[in-house]
Design a protein around this nucleic acid. Structure first.
Length: 110
DNA sequence: AAGGTGACAGTTT
DNA sequence: TAAACTGCCACCT
């Protein structure tokens, strides 16, 4: 059973459209806790195997770096999934990150 | 109950 | 300009 905070994080992450990515900080801000970006990542760590699935591969750090790729089953899993959605990646970093960036505050709350 | 950890972010050197 | 440090919140042992 997850805390409300975790559940909220998962809910937002599931709202990320395909071919789009978001950042931990953006999600944290959307939840009202701008400083809890690290906790968002922690929530992602626990998002494995829960239902419905959480597209954790669409969540990266603020510079578009696949910081959490190592936490997937296979390190290349995250990159593979993102490329599958049309996102180009170079050396664990998303190309045109700003173009693919999806900010919940901007898309949902606006 | 207290201390340590971390898939981050912002600030300072 | 790049690298390093500190702050931060929520979770875990």
């Amino acid at each position: 059973m997850q805390s409300d905070f975790f559940r909220d994080v998962y809910e937002v992450v599931r709202l990320i459209p395909e071919g789009r990515v978001s950042s931990y900080g953006a999600i944290a801000r959307y939840l009202g806790s701008a400083k809890s970006a690290r906790t968002v990542g922690y929530a992602m760590n626990a998002s494995h195997g829960l239902l419905p699935p959480v597209p954790a591969h669409r969540v990266v750090n603020r510079i578009g770096l696949l910081s959490g790729k190592h936490h997937f089953g296979e390190p290349n899993q995250m990159q593979n999934l993102l490329e599958s959605e049309g996102i180009e990646i170079e050396i664990d970093q998303i190309k045109n990150f700003e173009k693919h960036f999806w900010d919940p505050n901007q898309e949902l709350n606006l």
